[in-house]
Design a protein around this nucleic acid. Structure first.
Lengths: 213, 213
DNA sequence: CTTGTAAACGGAGGATGCCTCCGTATATGG
DNA sequence: CCATATACGGAGGCATCCTCCGTTTACAAG
């Protein structure tokens, strides 16, 4: 049809919105448990919708993965915004980084699938990289402005370090290791009260317990 | 295993060995092109064997992925051994790191699948991590022994940095970026001569804090 | 409230891929 | 050359993907 008005969008039906949400929720649950081997029909069943409905909202399996992924990344971004108002900038940064580790830990089976879809769409990759970098950037900037941490580390550096630390996300005990590494890293970011320019710092006594009680 | 019959291992038949090799070769080709969507039957066809033969050698898709993965990792390890004899230790390290970038670039579609299987088997994960760490370790040790680079960076650090740099392996132009980052990184590893480094990148503050061990 | 209609729903079913099973073919030792 | 263990190949059962279309439902106009 030669539709002359390109911007006529009917208000989406309420049930469509609701079902879309339900499917996303179910996908998160089912994929988290079953990883990438979970069948889409199981997702539909779990969401209480027909398989046809699932496919109308998400034409391919990848589209569904992508939607879930976007949501997760957005949630991490939102968390960063909330933490903006926290009183302690360094603690806020630390908490956000720890939240990432927990995020990976919770989604066990899904991480590989998410990484896979992220690898498939460079646009999505760019989006998530951007979003996470910005999230770190705001937290970092505040801590730097407060004079709490050094100013020569970029947000990309921190993101890469974080990714590297989560790389072994399925070896036994990886989470403890990652959290400890993160603490060391954040401690390293702090402006040292004793040395202004920490060029060759010997091992120092840890002022924080690495493991939570 | 307490095997009652000691060593009645007949010499494997020649055609079995040949077919196994053919399947691995075909899998590398097909997966590189089609990623994880490539059907095993396509692999069998490409290898010129029946589907049953493929399944006898590799009972599951993951087993096949794993075999391909192990082979690739082993090749990188072998490359490191060869480079041990190269005249310039720093150049050798640099070349090995660059080879990794090219490895990722070539296997486009397969990287995600490989990462996926690596995530599934912690033993395989440990193996590859070990193997690559050792590969870096030998190259690193030689360069350190030659007094060419600093001695306070561990092989794990280098591996993590490498992984981080390859993280965006599908954004347009990522390879150029990764290679540049690698060069900067290797330059940073060098023991700084009395004057400033000749290949200086004045974009950022060159001072980097050594990791606390 | 009633009614018309577009939009959404649900699931049957064709297509495709995974994997097993078994009859046939072949390499190897005697 | 024979015997036999070993490997080969592909038909077929089963699960999953995804499309298609008849039925149902939300929304708006009268």
């Amino acid at each position: 049809m030669a539709d002359s008005s390109p911007e006529i969008v009917r208000k989406p039906r309420a049930d469509a919105v609701r079902n879309r949400e339900r499917v996303l929720e179910a996908a998160k649950a089912v994929f988290s448990a079953g990883g990438n081997e979970a069948s889409l029909e199981a997702v539909a069943r779990h969401a209480g919708v027909g398989i046809g409905t699932l496919y109308r909202h998400f034409p391919t399996r990848e589209a569904l993965y992508e939607a879930v992924y976007r949501r997760e990344v957005a949630q991490l971004g939102d968390l960063a915004e909330q933490l903006q108002c926290a009183p302690e900038p360094v603690a806020a940064l630390r908490r956000w980084l720890r939240a990432n580790v927990e995020f990976v830990a919770t989604k066990k089976g899904m991480v590989a699938a998410l990484a896979l879809v992220a690898a498939g769409s460079s646009e999505l990759q760019a989006y998530s990289f951007d979003r996470l970098t910005k999230a770190i950037g705001t937290l970092l900037a505040r801590a730097v402005a407060a004079g709490a941490i050094r100013d020569d580390i970029s947000a990309e550096d921190v993101l890469r370090a974080l990714i590297g630390m989560c790389y072994m996300h399925d070896q036994p005990g990886w989470q403890t290791t990652a959290l400890r590494l993160l603490d060391v890293f954040v401690d390293g970011l702090r402006v040292q009260p004793d040395h202004k320019a920490p060029t060759a710092k010997p091992a120092k006594k840890p002022k924080r317990k690495p493991r939570q009680a």
